[in-house]
Design a protein around this nucleic acid. Structure first.
Lengths: 203, 203
DNA sequence: TAAAATTTTTAACATTTGTTAAAATTATTC
DNA sequence: GAATAATTTTAACAAATGTTAAAAATTTTA
């Protein structure tokens, strides 16, 4: 997870990240290990609004987003809270499901037509036991995802919705145009009405 | 991190967890690897109110809490927010500092006289490269800490301060007695006045 | 144990944000 | 391009929480 990269380049063209680059985003990997990971991966072409992960289903596998845009959110009976938007190069994972083979917490939908690579968890776990470079790559993945999640938490705890919205506008103007305000509001942790007030500079 | 265990047993006696049990809390480890980890560990006896980790200092090493109680918090110029309380068997780590060798986000203080084990990060990283069991143990540590942090985030997003306080009371009555209300309030994400109102059942 | 210091509760008020619903705007479909 | 659907903004009001400050209770110290 982590919306750190690009969905659209400077000229508005779609960005596509290679699977190897998705891997290397976490840690250097030798060609042999990359090859082993690629062999347990499957390329998927997904339509806008596709569902990748549902909180009530076990979804052990990991996805890497090569192109497109995804939304990660939690849901209860009465509310839906957006945790993150993920851009190409990012990882889509329900950590609890991946680690414990049980239903996790997150729902992940694709907001745009996307290309994702799916890595088979069972086969990955076997590689962890035999290839120390991949074991350490998997360690790095967990560590860096932890830090990304921590940064999101920090930002939500210490910055106002206004500040966080301004940050979004500055860093990812392309997104704001294309994502529903309701999603952005729940990402910021305010109601859509409050977000409208922020946008109108009433606050 | 993760306040999952016990500080005081049923009769009020202090709980002490062995270093090996701290390790095994994450994942099974063979005796040889346990021994290797123990060899890069150092036992520390700490007084109440000791400072373990400061957000403006690089603190790469990992601590395991064998006995006592710790508080993890973030701090800005005007506010302090308690993230977690950690009981024996838990891990005290500034993940950003541990991973990136830079100052992290968290401050960690000991709220009681405590016993902690410190693991040298540099030596640990060397073990990661040579011992695949330890590499996978380190992976598990990061994965499980991620899940604990995620659960805290979830709880804060979806449960009211009342609900979370009631949970605390039920699960850890021993703590509530000994921790300042201001710390608990900032853990719950409300002002101390609101926590007093909750306690008075005004709400 | 009395005095001092710290912590917790209570009170009064202001402010922020949510809720509901309607109006305005924008996007989609035929 | 008009009609329909979806999204966003605005308005009015209610409710919850924060702030400040003082009182009460508890703990610590001498």
């Amino acid at each position: 997870m982590g919306w750190g990269n690009f969905t659209f380049g400077k000229m508005g063209e779609k960005v596509v990240i290679s699977l190897a680059d998705c891997f290397q985003g976490y840690h250097f990997l030798n060609p042999l290990s990359i090859d082993r990971l690629e062999q347990i991966s499957e390329k998927l072409i997904c339509k806008r609004n596709s569902v990748l992960i549902r909180q009530d289903k076990i979804q052990k596998d990991i996805y890497f987003l090569a192109s497109g845009l995804a939304r990660v959110y939690y849901e209860t009976a009465d509310r839906q809270i957006t945790l993150d938007f993920v851009s190409p190069g990012g990882t889509l994972i329900s950590m609890n499901s991946y680690v414990h083979d049980t239903p996790g917490y997150e729902n992940i939908d694709l907001l745009e037509d996307s290309i994702v690579y799916k890595i088979d968890q069972k086969k990955l776990f076997m590689l962890y036991e035999s290839d120390i470079a991949i074991a350490n790559w998997g360690r790095k993945m967990a560590e860096l995802e932890f830090i990304k999640a921590e940064q999101r938490t920090m930002s939500k705890l210490f910055n106002t919705a206004q500040e966080r919205y301004a940050e979004l506008l500055e860093k990812y103007p392309q997104y704001i145009q294309r994502i529903k305000l309701g999603y952005i509001a729940s990402y910021l942790g305010v109601s859509q009405v409050t977000l409208s007030r922020i946008r109108a500079n009433i606050l």
